[in-house]
């Protein structure tokens, strides 16, 4: 396969464009996604390409736009919606948690909900408390929703395509700080399977489990630790629901030591779930204490000096790894 270097946001844009081209029933809706091309420019050109019938700017009405996406999906029109800042999803929680997540189940399997919700997530520098959060754990706690993340352009395109084709409601988390990062992406059509993790860096002493923007931070930490003689494996589950338990087991087989890293507040985060899975199912492989790295249990502050303290940094990851040895 031939490939080229494109940005994460361009990879998402290509996935959206190619999928909408493939299936003429797909609709896209969101705040400022059509004519303006999205606040972060991710949906640029799609309105021009597919027209206002298929790419729709909505009023600032998260409940109605997510509910409308669900209603259309129930009638066989797959939808793609964008939550401009994932923090705003609070306004659509009923439609996601009480409606979308449960429809297939409540109807005894007689309906399906092919809807995809793009969640623009994470701290991106001085965006403060209501535009910076990492809320993925909430949705992993709601049976019926799939939760997928991407940390590179390659993952973003391949996983997003799978997520759009998935017959269930999928929340796709994209990190703002990753939008401009470039990486190799095949020219040809490809998908990545949902539910399979990947080894982002091979190593033998300690496994760091990380997703979204914590992957590049963990890779930096690994480099520092490598200079100290500690060989770190970075394993990225990619999707949180479904979760690749076997992949986790495989990496722990190699290392036996585990550090779980998330950008969300440490308390009750998905990292706790990963640590618990390791403790329950891989205890035979574990050689030392499992460590978690997460944000401080505070709202995200505005001042950069404070934000840097709250959001996990490379140093925090390095320190956590040292403490497992």
């Amino acid at each position: 396969m031939s490939s080229r270097r494109i940005s994460y946001s361009q990879a998402i844009n290509e996935a959206l464009s190619e999928e909408m081209e493939r299936d003429p029933s797909i609709l896209m809706l969101g705040e400022d996604v059509a004519e303006p091309g999205g606040v972060f420019g991710v949906t640029k050109g799609l309105y021009q390409k597919f027209g206002g019938e298929r790419v729709l700017d909505t009023p600032i009405s998260e409940q109605a736009l997510v509910g409308a996406a669900l209603g259309a999906s129930l009638l066989g029109v797959p939808t793609i919606t964008e939550i401009m800042f994932s923090d705003f999803v609070t306004l659509a929680m009923d439609q996601l948690v009480n409606q979308a997540a449960k429809f297939h189940y409540m109807t005894g399997g007689r309906t399906s909900v092919p809807m995809l919700v793009r969640m623009v997530t994470g701290a991106s520098g001085a965006a403060s408390a209501q535009h910076s959060q990492s809320l993925e754990a909430w949705f992993t706690h709601t049976p019926g929703l799939k939760v997928v993340t991407a940390s590179t352009p390659y993952e973003a395109k391949g996983l997003l395509k799978s997520a759009i084709r998935d017959p269930d409601p999928v929340l796709f988390f994209e990190h703002k700080l990753l939008y401009n990062g470039k990486g190799e992406v095949p020219e040809e059509d490809y998908t990545l399977p949902i539910g399979e993790g990947t080894v982002a860096l091979e190593g033998s002493d300690v496994t760091i489990v990380a997703y979204l923007h914590m992957v590049p931070k963990s890779l930096k930490a690994a480099k520092i630790l490598s200079a100290e003689g500690i060989s770190v494996e970075v394993w990225n589950p990619r999707s949180l629901v479904p979760f690749d338990r076997e992949g986790l087991r495989q990496t722990l087989k190699k290392t036996g030591r585990l550090v779980v890293v998330q950008e969300a507040p440490k308390r009750s985060g998905f990292g706790a779930e990963i640590a618990a899975i390791a403790a329950e199912e891989c205890f035979d492989l574990i050689k030392g204490p499992i460590r978690r790295v997460g944000a401080a249990n505070t709202p995200i502050p505005y001042a950069p000096v404070m934000e840097n303290l709250v959001i996990p940094g490379v140093d925090d990851i390095v320190e956590a790894v040292r403490r497992t040895i």
Binding site: S25, L27, E53, R54, Q63, A64, V66, G67, A68, A69, L70, G71, A72, S73, L74, L75, G76, V77, T79, Q95, Q99
Partner: peptide, 14 residues
């Protein structure tokens, strides 16, 4: 209530 707005969108698309 929002679901029927979506149903109508599906009708429009159809």
């Amino acid at each position: 209530i929002p679901l029927v707005v979506g149903a109508a969108l599906a009708i429009k698309r159809a």
